[in-house]
Nucleic acid binder design. Sequence first.
DNA 1: TCTGGGGTCCTAGGACCC
DNA 2: TCTGGGGTCCTAGGACCC
Length: 423
Amino acid sequence: MTSLFALVDCNNFYASCERVFDPRLEGKPVVVLSNNDGCIIARSNEAKALGIKMGQPAFEVRELVKQHGVQVFSSNYELYGDMSRRVVNTLAQFTPSLEVYSIDESFLDLGDFLAHPDVAAYAKEIKETTKLWTGIPVSVGVAPTKTLAKLANRLSKKWTDAAGVLVLTEAQAIEEALQRTAVEDVWGIGRQHAQRLRQQGVHTALDLRNLPDAWVKKHMAVTGLRTVRELRGEPCADLELEVPAKQNICTSRSFSRPLTELTDIEEALATHVVRCATKLRKQHSCAGALTVFLTTSRFAAKEQQYYDSRTARLPGPTGSELELLHQARRLLRGMFRHGYRYNKTGVILSELVPETQVQLTLFGGEQSEKQAKLMQALDSLRDRFGHGVVKNGVQGTAQRWIMSQEHCSPCYTTRLDEIIRAR
DNA sequence: TCTGGGGTCCTAGGACCC
DNA sequence: TCTGGGGTCCTAGGACCC
């Protein structure tokens, strides 16, 4: 029995989301910006054709944008998250086991490939149904391992004949695909490994597949070996059907402009802590430790640089943002130095344990029970009325650090007052 | 002027214990 | 003078992913 995986990847996902609700964008170059409108994180095909690069700073493409009428959007994660759910719900129609790998990619277990006399037709149906039901164009790669399915998916977009669907089951087709894939484009091969491999004369995925195990193990560890085996068609990674609880939760943002005053930074940090604690409670965990970091911009080469991070172990695992805020503020005050132009702060919660475990071991003192009730109340208010509805005093109101988002589209699907109107 | 944010896994080496 | 060997835990750092 041969396993069979499909990787379904949404094409230019964020740009496609913007397009679904604004048909005037069809055929035009579209880009989506990162937080603070800093750099490009999604591009439509037309924008790619103009030479706009992934991760490129927005100011570098200003001229290009003007010249070619590129449509620019700030990122709107509320919209993208909702569209992502719709896509996943559609894909779930095609398989009982599905792994949501990222906001725009899912692996589908297609079971035994003998059970699919015409895999290609099935893959095409997945693609067409998703477009029809959600408006989002996707590409589908099918192969006996996840790594090969990734590779097939990539080629399905590159090879115009494939038209967004590529099935790699025949040995010869796999070989050709490997031959035509650069080694750095293999899933799991990053910059460092690619450079080393190239020095060894390994230039294609096929060369990589043919390396001896011992060499791979020595230089690329067991993760590298898994990748190579998967290229050979031996499945080493199963689907992860349940989303594992995160082991760390982090919230951080660059400031919209450099900050020098402690009070401004405290406000920003407090806001991150509240966000982070909300994520923590959403996955029903408590944190045993908290880390705060503070840094200047690494791009401001001429300025004095500063980076520090400090960790506090909490007296006991907690989900209370009041306690976390208190600790975070203490750590920040210990790190803060006058005379620097800071550009970012953030918080990381770690040593996470399930909420239930804490309730059992902490004999729920009256105080902690009160706090838990308060947190529940806050969560439900914020769920219903948006995150800004209840704030802690330290979050402040001046918010001189707040994110710039000058090109945000409406939340068409999740906010009643921003719903699309037909004229 | 303007350069994202959030994760995971693996390994090596030190501390410590018996 | 002789100066083991193995196990565990923790941390920092590297590499990768989207």
